[in-house]
Simulated assay, not measured.
Amino acid sequence: MKLAFSIGMRFLKKSKVQTALIVIGIVIGVAVQVFVGSLIEGLQQSLVDGTIGSSPHITIVNSQDNEPFADNEALYEDLKEDERLTAVAKSFSKNGLVSLDEDNTKAVLLRSFEMSDADAIYSFEENLVEGVLPTETNEVIIGTNFSEANELTVGDTVNFIASTDKAEDLTVVGIFDLGVASLNESWVVSELATGQALFEEADRLTSIETQLDDVFAADTIAAEVNTQIEDANLVTTNWKEANESLLSGLTGQSISSYMIQVFVLVAVLLGIASVLAISAVQKSKQLGILKAMGIKDKTAGQIFLFQGFVLGTVGAVIGAGLGLGLMYGFSYFVKNADGSSLVPFYFDTQFVILSSVIAIVASTIAAFIPAKNSSRLNPMEVIQNG
């Protein structure tokens, strides 16, 4: 094997133009694979974060028109202990009215949580424009749109009227911007105890909301959570059920990415095979002499296999670096109107390594045909034909 490797390297060094062409082809192929794959994965990650990044992935609700249900502490603790869930929050949400003066009332949705849990899902603290999160009963935060439309600021008091006709003055302690106009216009957020007291539903919830580490496993995990729920009236919903069009788009992107990568790989493979085949013909006289000197057929074939492996390794390493460089440049220079990256830089170590390994294997396989032909060379015929 050492002899085959030594001869193969000598052939590569002697045919510098051919060697450079093969390496460039592999570099471009791997770079395109890494860039396209990383770009689409980054785009998918951006889309998922933008649509469901700050919303529950699995929600437990009452199947009876989402009516309140008894707070089940055992179920809550079981969910908190599930390592697949990154956040679990109890919620009590009901529609009501905010009375600003005698002639001005606004319909709102009062969303009540244990704020420390809910913040892991909705990032309320991160999205605060002004003020602080509610910590006491009858403290609320409101959205920027609602605040501006009704000229409300931190420290103001609003009168909330529940569907039970119970009214209570609530103090605005903060203003948030969740980036969604409909939420900024209609959500009034408080501690869990505030909502339960206003609607006279002590120790009852309207939902338990969770987020996952692997968002695409939401349907599978939701089915498993269903088996843990003892109350027959409670059911799980997941983000996939409400975002079928998004899932279709993500699937289409993934398929197009795989198709591009396959075609690029096939083109690179054919290019390597053709150039090495030509090299085998060019080196037939030398191979014939080597065989006449006693080199084995197996060793003659290994010469080109080693060439394919070395060329694939060099091209894969350089190509992976170039692909990541292109991805970084794209994320750095292509911006949204607000200055943020249109597609965030995405570096999946496993994907880059897999792309490189596939390129190396493909290069070695591409060398199989010239390797097989060289092992069949008859040294006497080669020498006689010149």
Rank of each mutant, 00 (worst) to 15 (best):
L12K: 06
K16F: 08
T19K: 09
I22P: 10
V32N: 06
F35Y: 09
L43H: 11
L43C: 04
S46E: 15
V48L: 14
D49M: 12
D49Q: 15
I52V: 15
G53P: 10
G53W: 12
P56Q: 04
I58H: 03
I58M: 03
T59L: 01
V61T: 07
P68T: 10
D71W: 08
D71H: 11
A74K: 12
A74Y: 08
A74E: 15
A74T: 14
L75V: 02
Y76Q: 12
E81V: 02
E83F: 00
A89Y: 00
S91Q: 14
G96L: 03
L97D: 13
K106T: 11
L109R: 14
R111A: 06
F113G: 13
F113Q: 14
M115P: 05
S116K: 15
D117M: 10
A118F: 05
Y122N: 11
T135A: 11
N138A: 09
E139S: 07
I142T: 09
N145A: 10
F146A: 13
L152Q: 05
D156W: 01
V158G: 04
D169P: 02
L170A: 03
I175H: 01
S182K: 06
N184V: 03
N184I: 01
E185M: 06
T194E: 11
Q196C: 09
D203F: 10
R204A: 12
R204H: 14
V215W: 09
A218R: 01
I221K: 07
A223Q: 14
N226T: 13
N226W: 09
T227K: 12
E230M: 04
N233W: 08
V235T: 15
T236W: 10
N243L: 12
G249H: 06
Q261D: 11
V264H: 04
V268N: 08
L269R: 08
L270R: 11
S274R: 14
S279L: 09
K283F: 00
K285W: 03
L287I: 15
G288C: 04
I289R: 00
I295S: 02
K296W: 01
D297C: 02
D297F: 00
Q302M: 15
I303L: 05
V310R: 09
V310F: 13
A320I: 08
G321D: 13
L322G: 05
G325V: 04
G325W: 05
F330G: 04
F333R: 04
K335E: 07
P344K: 10
P344W: 11
F345D: 15
Y346N: 15
V352W: 06
V352N: 09
V357A: 10
I360T: 08
V361L: 10
A362Y: 02
A366K: 05
A367Q: 01
A367P: 01
A371G: 10
N373V: 00
S375I: 02
P379S: 05
E381V: 02
Q384V: 09
